Simulated scan of single mutants.
Amino acid sequence: MKNPNRKTVSKLEALPNLGKAISSDLRLIGISKPQNLIGKNPFDLYNELCIKKGEPVDHCVIDVFMSVVDFMEGGEPQPWWTFTQKRKQTFKEGK
């Protein structure tokens, strides 16, 4: 897994769990650099993406968004699927 320096990383593709497709999706919703992720709500990012694309996107994208926001806010790099249970719990609680 990529382990970039969050203070100096300048490209979305350099973040853990991000490749070209998800980086492109983030740019579509106005996230052009990793620092733009700080303070963002991954669920809001997901909703914006669904609106921009005009259709629902796989819920696993939320897990990826959770992982990169967490990383940029100081968390250790983790595989995106470690956030799946947290996402499911959040949906269950209706947040």
Rank of each mutant, 00 (worst) to 15 (best):
S10K: 15
S10W: 02
W81K: 13
P16M: 02
Q35F: 07
D44P: 00
M1I: 10
C50D: 01
K86D: 15
K11Q: 12
G30R: 02
N36W: 08
Q78P: 00
N41Q: 07
N41S: 14
L12K: 02
P79R: 15
H59G: 13
H59C: 13
V9T: 03
L37V: 07
G54K: 03
V9F: 01
F65E: 04
K33Q: 10
T84Y: 14
L49K: 05
V61F: 08
T90H: 14
I31D: 00
E76D: 15
D58G: 06
K2L: 06
I22P: 02
L28W: 09
P16A: 03
N3M: 06
I51Y: 10
H59F: 14
W81C: 08
I29D: 00
A14F: 01
V69L: 10
K88Q: 15
A14S: 04
C60G: 14
R27V: 04
E13M: 14
F71W: 07
V69E: 06
K7P: 00
L37D: 00
D70P: 04
E93Y: 10
R87F: 12
Q85C: 11
F83I: 12
R6Y: 12
G94Y: 11
P56K: 15
P79W: 09
G74L: 12
P4W: 02
V64H: 04
P42M: 05
C60N: 15
M66D: 07
S24L: 12
N17V: 05
L12N: 02
K2M: 05
S23R: 08
N41E: 09
K88C: 07
K20P: 04
K92R: 12
F83A: 11
P34T: 00
L37I: 11
I62D: 00
K52M: 08
L28P: 07
K20G: 09
W81Y: 15
N3Q: 06
C60A: 15
G19D: 03
Q35S: 14
L12S: 04
N3E: 04
V57H: 04
V9P: 00
A21T: 11
K95P: 05
I29H: 01
G19F: 06
P16F: 05
E76M: 12
E73A: 14
V61L: 07
L37G: 03
S24H: 11
A14V: 00
L18T: 10
P4H: 01
G39I: 08
K11R: 13
E48K: 13
D63E: 14
V57Q: 12
T90P: 01
D25T: 01
C60I: 13
D58E: 07
P77C: 11
F71Q: 03
M1Y: 07
Q78C: 06
N41A: 06
G19A: 08
F71C: 08
R27S: 03
K11P: 01
L26W: 00
G30I: 01
L28N: 11
H59K: 15
S23C: 12
S67Q: 05
R27E: 08
